[in-house]
Design a protein around this nucleic acid. Structure first.
Lengths: 114, 114
DNA sequence: CGAGACTGGAACGGTAGCGTAACGATTTCG
DNA sequence: CGAAATCGTTACGCTACCGTTCCAGTCTCG
């Protein structure tokens, strides 16, 4: 079901959510980190470093570093793949799901204000 | 007029737009820089450094540095206030308006895909 | 006038992400 | 087997943003 937005609605929504994110000041994720996180939680697993790099159009070290940072925040987890021990499977966490749930609420809340 | 979104719609929209932004690779603005830019273009002028800092809940140097960076990109412009020469008025530019127009299109485009 | 308040910006050291180029570990296959 | 390919990670030098502090210019008002 398509969702039709006017130009002013689209930018207004982006404005409200971004502003709220800045003011909240919790975790200041990079645009890339945010994209990675959303990809992990919204697209069916399994997720690998290589796969994410290809999907986002960035190099592998970018993914590794982002996973380091977000791993320390508890937003994601890494597990070796036992079927092919070269791979690393990126796992979701409760903390990460909660974080994205809050982001979703923020979007919904500002959507209502339009 | 309120815009009601489901949780999956809200996150899906954010996901699509963020992903497109990362892949596009043009200018990689910080979350704060994006918030500043949207504030300047969506809220009636005049905009000052101090005012923006208060609105976003950050310190003045953060605004100064962001304006430096975005100024070099041509996204904003700075002009001394002749009525009170302590103030600096932040001006909009054609490049900046174009940039935000593209962002708006991106949001609209991904809104349609939901 | 001159003291004080106000503005935006500069200076400082610290931290985090970047791209490129390697590396060790593992699997594949000739 | 052993050579080659593939995976994720690390190392390196670099750039950009960070928070704190301080500063020069400007206005206000007794």
């Amino acid at each position: 079901m398509p969702l039709d937005l006017s130009a002013s609605q689209a930018l207004g929504l982006w404005h409200g959510v971004t502003l709220a994110q800045v003011r909240r000041e919790d975790h200041d994720l990079t645009l890339r980190q945010t994209a990675i996180l959303l990809q992990i939680y919204l697209v069916p697993p399994p997720h690998t470093v290589r796969g994410l790099a290809a999907t986002l159009g960035v190099t592998k070290p970018v993914i590794t570093r982002a996973l380091d940072t977000m791993g320390e925040m508890g937003l994601v987890d890494r597990v070796r793949d036992d079927r092919d021990r070269r791979n690393v499977i990126i796992k979701r966490t409760v903390t990460g799901a909660l974080y994205l749930e809050k982001l979703g609420d923020l979007v919904i809340e500002h959507g209502r204000k339009l």
